[in-house]
Amino acid sequence: MSDCQLYLISPLDVGGDFPARLEKALDAGPVAAFQFRVKDVDQHEAARLAEPLQAICAERDVAFIVNDSISLAKRLRADGVHLGQGDGDAREAREILGREAQIGVTCHASRHLAMEAGDAGADYVAFGSFFPSGTKQSEHRAEPELLTWWQGLFEIPCVAIGGITPENCGPLVEAGADFLAVSGAVWNGDEAAAVRAFAARL
């Protein structure tokens, strides 16, 4: 079984002292990727906020993924983009961002959407929410066996998302998640301690 890795998703507020918090989190344990997720700011402001965070990730060889916006990902020359079901198509993202870009697609609890994303050339699919999440309301509830089903059929990595904590992540790792996407469990407290706690479980 491949090792499961941590995939951090930013809080919506990434200003102020957040760059220092990100450094602490990334230095506390292995993190594979960081997703830049901001809402209701224009692209110019988003780019300004992203710049120091992208540099912090680059220094530590952590993939910098932009949430929702193919155009922002292109502008920042980000490592990739994460698309919700309403944010465009993996094929379109590939054309715009190039072969090297990491393209992920939210598939909720749907096997059908995940297979479609794989056919469209996604580099990973994200399933969730596995647990109630305070970060993002989701009417979709996924079960761990979805991860096991995916791993049995497909080479493309899968990401588990939604209310994941160091305490409840065990079944998802056992079921075959390649990555655990976490936000609140890290940023709502001591980020370094949280990353260390996840590292101990993974």
Rank of each mutant, 00 (worst) to 15 (best):
S71M: 09
V38D: 04
Q54D: 05
E59V: 13
R75M: 13
A33K: 03
A63Q: 10
V41T: 13
Q85K: 06
P30F: 06
G80R: 01
Q85C: 08
V62A: 11
P30Q: 08
Q43P: 03
L72G: 12
A46S: 06
K74W: 09
V31R: 00
A28T: 02
I56D: 06
L49C: 11
G80E: 00
L76D: 06
L72V: 12
A58Q: 14
R60E: 07
D42P: 14
A50P: 11
A78G: 12
G29K: 00
N67I: 05
Q54L: 12
S69I: 13
P30L: 02
Q35W: 09
A32H: 09
S69C: 12
H44G: 13
L83F: 03
V62K: 08
D79E: 11
E45Q: 15
R75F: 08
L49Q: 14
K39F: 10
A63K: 15
D61M: 10
K39D: 02
V31N: 01
V66E: 12
N67Y: 05
R37C: 05
A58G: 15
A63E: 13
V41A: 05
Q43S: 15
A46W: 08
A73Y: 03
Q54E: 13
D79K: 09
A73S: 10
K39W: 07
K74L: 14
A47Q: 07
F36A: 01
D61Q: 15
L49T: 12
C57P: 05
L53W: 06
L83H: 01
G84I: 05
G29E: 02
R77I: 07
E45Y: 03
E59R: 15
V31W: 00
L76M: 05
Q85Y: 01
A32D: 02
F36P: 09
A50C: 08
K39N: 05
D68A: 07
A33W: 00
A28P: 03
K74D: 15
S71F: 04
G29Q: 00
